[in-house]
Simulated assay, not measured.
Amino acid sequence: MSTADQDKLPPPVAVAGAADNLAGPAGAGGPADMVDGMAFARLYGEPLFKLPQDLYIPPDALEIFLEAFEGPLDLLLYLIRKQNFNVLDIPMSQVTRQYLSYIEQIRKTNLELAAEYLLMAAMLIEIKSRMLLPVKKADSDEDAEDPRAELVRRLLEYEQMKLAAQRLDTVPQLGRDFLRSQVYIEQSLAPRFPEVETIDLQAAWADVLKRAKLNQHHKISREELSVREHMSQILRRLQHARFMEFSELFEDAIRSGKGVPVVVVNFIAMLELSRESLVEITQAEPFAPIYVRLAYSPS
């Protein structure tokens, strides 16, 4: 069929599936009277009951590729394994002939043949030529290296990588073999305050002690300090406040200038109250200010 004839061909037909007994001439009522499902195909939305006589289908439209190779080494390994050749003793003449035959088939349909395929073809021809030449012994009386050694090494390495890739592909993958489960848990409305760690209490105490040293008076006197008395003072102060910051318990002792001894006794009194579960030491979140309050006692 000439180019001029091809330009006159009708537009492509979308085949909807048919059988020989379904495609036949229209009845007296015409194609419009027939059931739409009996049409062989549809052309621009209209039912088609028989293929046009001048319909041209190019040969490439029915071409089927049974094997797909990822590179020249993949093709070469396929030819060797398919014929059960020993990869350490490759019959170069036969393998090269089959490889060139495959390359020639690709070249007929695909002019943009990858250069790596042609490079491998040249390498096979070179190895085949070197094997036809007589072997020359080296001066050290050692056997000459096999021309196929480099090719065998590359084939073995490629086969190892290919098998490793196949094993990795069998490993379950997220999104392909399974999906990540998501569970929504309703959080409790009651706030949970973190527990006061020992290091937080030490840091707060060190800050109070530092401030007490800055406000002390150099007055030598002897005073008897009672831990129980300071415990009572702390309990009285906490009765009028729901929460009291840790450092506020020592403000009176610091302002009075009584020095570090009073502050130390006051701190011991607070620890004793905490040990006897009369007060609670808490904080809203990590690294937040530390508060002291009376211990909760159910009525």
Rank of each mutant, 00 (worst) to 15 (best):
215 N>W: 07
172 P>R: 05
202 Q>K: 05
228 R>Q: 11
76 L>A: 00
78 Y>Q: 03
64 I>T: 13
205 W>Y: 08
107 R>W: 04
116 E>I: 01
70 E>F: 03
32 A>C: 01
38 M>W: 09
198 T>Y: 12
141 D>K: 06
216 Q>S: 10
284 A>V: 02
195 E>L: 12
103 I>W: 03
264 V>K: 08
286 P>I: 06
204 A>W: 00
266 N>H: 03
76 L>R: 01
175 G>H: 06
154 R>G: 00
272 E>T: 10
24 G>A: 08
74 D>N: 07
136 K>A: 10
197 E>R: 12
297 S>N: 11
240 H>W: 03
53 Q>T: 11
178 F>V: 04
185 I>F: 12
86 N>G: 09
211 R>Q: 14
100 L>G: 00
251 E>V: 14
91 P>E: 06
237 R>T: 06
5 D>G: 04
101 S>F: 05
163 L>K: 14
60 D>P: 02
196 V>H: 00
41 A>S: 13
179 L>I: 05
123 M>N: 15
123 M>C: 07
129 S>T: 12
299 S>D: 08
70 E>H: 06
108 K>L: 10
96 T>Q: 13
153 R>P: 00
250 F>A: 10
217 H>M: 06
273 L>H: 04
171 V>K: 10
217 H>A: 11
245 E>H: 05
82 K>G: 00
295 A>C: 07
201 L>Y: 01
137 K>P: 04
234 I>W: 01
28 A>G: 07
184 Y>K: 10
272 E>Q: 15
56 Y>D: 09
84 N>V: 03
272 E>L: 10
124 L>F: 06
293 R>Y: 05
164 A>E: 15
